[in-house]
Amino acid sequence: MRALRWFALSVGAVVFLLPFAVLVRDGVGGWSEVFSDREIPLVRSLLNSTVVAVGQTVGQVVLCALAGYGLARVPYRHASVVLYAIVATLMVPTAVTFLPSFVVVSSLGWLSDLRGLIVPGLFSALNVFLFRQYFQDFPTPLEEAGRLDGLTVWGVYWRVVVPNSRGFVAAIAVIDFIGSWNQFLWPLIIAQDSSTWTVQVALSSLLTAQNPRITLLFAAATVSILPIVLIFVVLQRYLVRGVTETGLTGQ
């Protein structure tokens, strides 16, 4: 039984690692030219992806944590109505909003504009919900001590609550960053001009082109996953926590 378990796990591990091995193997020949080749705007698209992912992660965490704290801790008569209005949007699948959001973004003149890639994704109802739950369990004595020292609610939030919530913020931020870096449909629609392509769009347009240059493509793809693999290795503790927190709300 035990041997069988080890056998199953080992075979599984080989199967799961094989695609990464193939990715690296097939890209070796393209490494020397991957940054200089004109056909794929790799440097530009990596830069765009970085701006989008960093902007989206920071913006999302700041906005959603604020809202989550307000909902959890600031007494207000209509707070439950606001909470319902936020949570209700979780029922609407993104598949349904991508088209109308495109319409809104194009009316704002944000097509082929990094703002159009970043801003609409900032308002994550799921994140607000998670932060609210987290802040509800935040130890009140810490906040009370801050109030006694003469801080306002706003002051307590920034000087007491946030510094003591780094682990949770990191967990949410890691998930947001990976999601943002890897997202495809939204940038495909919005970044119509190649100067605003994210790295996923750049790879995809090369992959679906006529006679794709496969070696170059594999080399570029390898470069594109390096930042996330690095995050995965260094911040896995937070990542696992983030996944657990995010997934359980599905209930």
Partner: peptide
Amino acid sequence: VFFLPFACSYVVASLVWKMS
């Protein structure tokens, strides 16, 4: 090992599956 593919985008995975 089993969690690692979570770091990979659908685009990159598609490339590996389709071309290799």
